[in-house]
């Protein structure tokens, strides 16, 4: 559980530190002295509800993967039956595809910011297609592994490999729902500012899942 605790401690430290900074020098029992005095400014305009919502959700997803990785390491150390999974070369290709998906969405975000509708359209669609390609690639890796006899039940290392890749792919597929909504807005002719609000969430979420995949892949490679 060390990994979970470290990750959680970091997240908690940021959050609790922020809360303390909001509360340490405040005297809540003092009321405003006049109606005319401008009431305290609450939220900077760049901090929108969907952005905050995404950050909170990423914290939840971080918790899911940190716990899974902790379980992976604990199970590896606790049992004597751990035999590592081989890493098919296709995994490297898939990783490349996911990187491209992330780059595409980042470009889309950039295009939306600068009002380049055609570029936005192309890169947003490319991001989705590359993501689907990644998921299909992962399925092919599963087939290769099971064809080579690395069944889920044969060894805990295999079971964890299938579990972690499935969890990661499910999160990507969930992201495709948000991607679909952004795409729908774009083709529905919505204002660029509204499309951008959706695209930026997708881009950040994809970067985050790329990072998660890098960690998971690294874990599988080194153990």
């Amino acid at each position: 559980m060390t990994i979970t605790l470290i990750v959680l401690a970091l997240m908690m430290a940021v959050f609790v530190g922020w809360l303390f900074s909001q509360s340490i020098n405040v005297r809540p029992w003092i009321a405003e002295t006049s109606r005319a005095r401008p009431l305290p400014r609450i939220i900077p305009p760049s901090v929108t509800a969907p952005r905050v919502g995404l950050v909170v959700f990423l914290a939840v997803v971080t918790s899911v993967f940190a716990l899974s990785i902790s379980a992976y390491i604990m199970r590896m150390e606790m049992g004597t039956d751990w035999r590592s999974v081989p890493e098919p070369g296709l995994l490297w290709l898939n990783t490349g595809v996911l990187v491209l998906a992330s780059v595409a969405l980042q470009t889309a975000w950039h295009a939306a910011k600068h009002g380049k509708r055609p570029l936005l359209r192309r890169t947003l669609v490319a991001g989705g297609i590359l993501t689907v390609a990644f998921v299909i690639g992962q399925l092919v890796v599963w087939r290769q592994l099971s064809a080579a006899g690395y069944y889920m039940t044969a060894n805990p290392a295999n079971a964890f490999f299938y579990l972690l890749t499935a969890l990661h792919a499910l999160h990507l597929l969930g992201g495709l729902v948000a991607w679909g909504r952004a795409l729908n807005k774009l083709y529905g002719g919505a204002e660029l500012a509204r499309v951008r609000a959706g695209v930026e969430l997708c881009a950040v979420y994809w970067h985050f899942l790329l990072l998660v995949w890098a960690v998971l892949f690294g874990l599988v490679l080194t153990t």
């Binding site: 509360s23 405040v26 809540p28 405003e32 609450i42 905050v52």
Partner: peptide, 15 residues
């Protein structure tokens, strides 16, 4: 969480 952080009315500081 987001409602508490984002949707507080004017003057409603955390404290």
């Amino acid at each position: 969480v987001v409602t508490v952080l984002q949707a507080r009315t004017r003057g409603m500081t955390l404290m």
